Simulated assay, not measured.
Amino acid sequence: MTGPLTIRPMSAADWPAVEAIYRAGIATGNATFEAEPPSWEHFDAGKLDVGRLVTIDNTGAVVGWVAASLVSARLVYRGVVEHSVYVAPAVAGQGVGRQLVDAFISAAESAGIWTIQSSIFPENTASLTLHDHAGFRRIGTRERIALMTYGPWAGQWRDTILIERRSIDGSS
């Protein structure tokens, strides 16, 4: 990848590229329990506007995305979100994920979000390393949390590693 990257809010027009990147992650069997990307309408309804970002390369192509959803509708959890970050396979390992996560953290903290969490498959070492470097901590392993229904892990119980990052002062 050459040239500068731009990070900007995701729009409905980005959905075909976002969906393709999401689909590539799903195909690995190590990105999500979901077997198919949702429709744009379902994705849009389930994700917060805060920190819903895409990375654009110098050709104008979407090469990564990040988005989050609330972990609970209960008021006491209003500052706690679960995020997802996906990078196009062609640019994996080139810093796109780190730029997205950093931009997401900044947007989330500015919006009063004090805890960002996610569950990552232990086999997804790239994501675990990315999040380690971005200041997330590993809370623990959720053993045999769900039965995989598709792909290379179909029919197998999967573990996930719960990670979180708290805002610096914890009081956003």
Rank of each mutant, 00 (worst) to 15 (best):
D159T: 00
D102L: 15
P152Y: 02
R8T: 11
L100M: 09
A31S: 15
T59Y: 02
R158S: 09
L130Q: 01
I7W: 02
T59M: 06
A92K: 04
V87C: 03
A154I: 13
F121Y: 10
E41K: 11
V63D: 01
A154L: 10
L100K: 08
L48G: 09
G95H: 01
V76K: 15
A13F: 12
H133R: 15
L130W: 01
A61N: 12
E36P: 11
I163E: 08
I120Y: 01
V80H: 09
A68S: 11
S171E: 15
A27I: 02
A90Y: 11
N124I: 03
A90R: 15
G97N: 10
G135P: 07
H133V: 11
A68F: 00
A88R: 04
T115Q: 03
A92L: 06
W157A: 05
S167K: 00
W15F: 00
I168H: 15
E36F: 10
L5V: 14
A24D: 14
V101T: 09
R23E: 07
R137H: 07
Y77G: 04
V71E: 00
S84M: 02
V101C: 08
E123R: 06
I161L: 08
A67Y: 02
A90F: 06
N58L: 05
F43M: 03
S106W: 12
V76Q: 15
I56A: 05
A107T: 03
I116R: 04
A24R: 10
I26Q: 07
L130F: 01
G170M: 00
V91P: 04
V96T: 07
W153P: 11
G64A: 02
P37E: 09
D159H: 04
Y22G: 03
R8A: 10
G25A: 05
D159E: 01
V62A: 05
